[in-house]
Computed example of a mutant assay.
Amino acid sequence: MNIAYWIVAGLLASFYLYAGGLKMVRSPEQLRPMMAWVDRIPLPAVRALGTVEVLGAVGLLLPPATGIAPWPALAAAIGFTVLQTGAIVVHLTGQDRRIILNIGLVTAAAVTIWLATARL
Rank of each mutant, 00 (worst) to 15 (best):
A45G: 00
W6S: 10
Y18M: 11
G20L: 02
Y5E: 04
P28S: 01
L17D: 11
P44Q: 07
A118F: 02
L105Q: 08
A110G: 10
S14L: 15
P72S: 05
M35W: 10
T107R: 02
L120S: 15
A87E: 13
L83P: 01
R40N: 13
A77F: 11
R98Q: 15
R98H: 14
I41Y: 05
A65T: 08
L17K: 02
W37C: 00
L105C: 13
Y5K: 09
Y5S: 03
D39I: 00
L74D: 07
L115S: 09
G20M: 11
I3H: 08
A108I: 09
G56P: 05
G56R: 03
P72D: 08
W71H: 10
M35F: 11
V8T: 10
L31H: 07
A77E: 12
Q84F: 14
T107L: 15
V111N: 02
M34F: 14
A65S: 07
H91M: 10
L17I: 10
P63I: 12
M34W: 12
R119K: 09
K23Y: 00
V90Y: 05
V111G: 03
T112S: 14
V106C: 15
A118W: 03
A110W: 00
P44H: 04
Y18H: 07
N2A: 11
R97C: 03
Y5N: 05
V106K: 00
Y5H: 01
I99Q: 07
A108T: 10
L22T: 09
N2T: 14
Q30S: 13
Q30W: 01
R47P: 03
G56H: 10
A48L: 15
L105R: 05
G86F: 13
L101G: 05
T85A: 15
R26D: 06
L31C: 11
R98M: 11
T66I: 12
G79Q: 09
Q95Y: 05
A36M: 04
A73R: 04
A57T: 06
P72C: 06
N2E: 14
W37Y: 10
G86S: 09
A76Q: 06
I100V: 15
L22I: 10
G20F: 03
T66A: 11
V111P: 04
E29H: 09
M1F: 02
G20D: 11
D39R: 05
M34T: 09
G56D: 07
V25W: 02
T107V: 15
T117P: 00
A118T: 08
